[in-house]
């Protein structure tokens, strides 16, 4: 579904991504792991169109989408829930959700809104509150709900569990799994490696802008070297 080949990306003169190749199969959950500064967020930004790659090609559903703007990619079916959630703090929860369906012209928006509010009752409770007044976990749910309302084919999630309490993290992973089960393909970036791999089909490990390992999620979970280096388990 998504095929990224030989991507090189820069911030100014600093090369952040070196020759990144990755693939996401339709219907799967794929996780990108790596330490801080490895280039995970940059990879997501590049796929979502926030950053234009210097070299390389991004194909989505067989179409070359390299260099398209985020709003154009959203229309093609790629939605990003960015790092730090990026809720519109000065707009109400409802307005945030409505903005999720901004590009849609069909007449099922109202129906989808209701479904989402049913799935996230806390958002319904606070629908008239400003987005900025929500707690971190609620903001993450709002960000995910908002992205779902765009009816994405591929949902990119950049560190959805960042800064959240463990109980809420478990909730977020459950939601991601559910979204995937309704037919949305998911590309996930996570620090919380073990939990992310548990719900994933495939994983990539990123290190200083390069992919240093990849494989089935199950294999990565069982690979002692990877567990030690990236998943924080000390070898005994």
């Amino acid at each position: 579904m998504l095929k990224v080949s030989c991507i090189h990306a820069f911030y100014g003169n600093i090369q952040v991504l070196k020759n990144i190749d990755l693939q996401v199969e339709e219907g799967s959950i794929v996780t990108i792991l790596g330490a801080n500064g490895a280039g995970k967020t940059t990879t997501m930004k590049t796929v979502a169109g926030l950053l234009k790659p210097q070299q390389g090609k991004i194909e989505f559903l067989g179409e070359d989408v390299t260099g398209l703007r985020p709003d154009q990619l959203l229309r093609k079916g790629i939605a990003l829930v960015p790092e730090g959630r990026q809720i519109l703090a000065g707009m109400t929860v409802m307005e945030n959700l409505e903005m999720g369906a901004y590009h849609r012209k069909d007449n099922e928006i109202g129906q989808d809104l209701e479904k989402v509010l049913e799935r996230f009752p806390i958002l319904k409770e606070r629908e008239k509150q400003l987005g900025g007044t929500l707690s971190g976990g609620q903001q993450q749910m709002l960000a995910i709900a908002r992205a779902i309302l765009s009816r994405p084919k591929l949902l990119l999630l950049d560190e959805p569990s960042m800064g959240l309490a463990p109980l809420i993290v478990a909730d977020i992973f459950k939601i991601i799994k559910e979204i995937n089960e309704t037919g949305t393909t998911v590309l996930l970036v996570e620090q919380n490696a073990r939990q992310a791999l548990k719900i994933s089909d495939y994983g990539y490990v990123l290190e200083i802008g390069k992919i240093v390992a990849d494989g089935k999620a199950q294999d990565l979970l069982n690979d002692p070297r990877i567990m030690e280096a990236y998943l924080g388990r000390k070898s005994s």
Binding site: L50, D71, L74, A79, P82, Q86, L88, M99, S150
Partner: peptide, 10 residues
Amino acid sequence: ENLETASLLG
């Protein structure tokens, strides 16, 4: 409020 977020929302 946030140009980048707005563009991500289409």
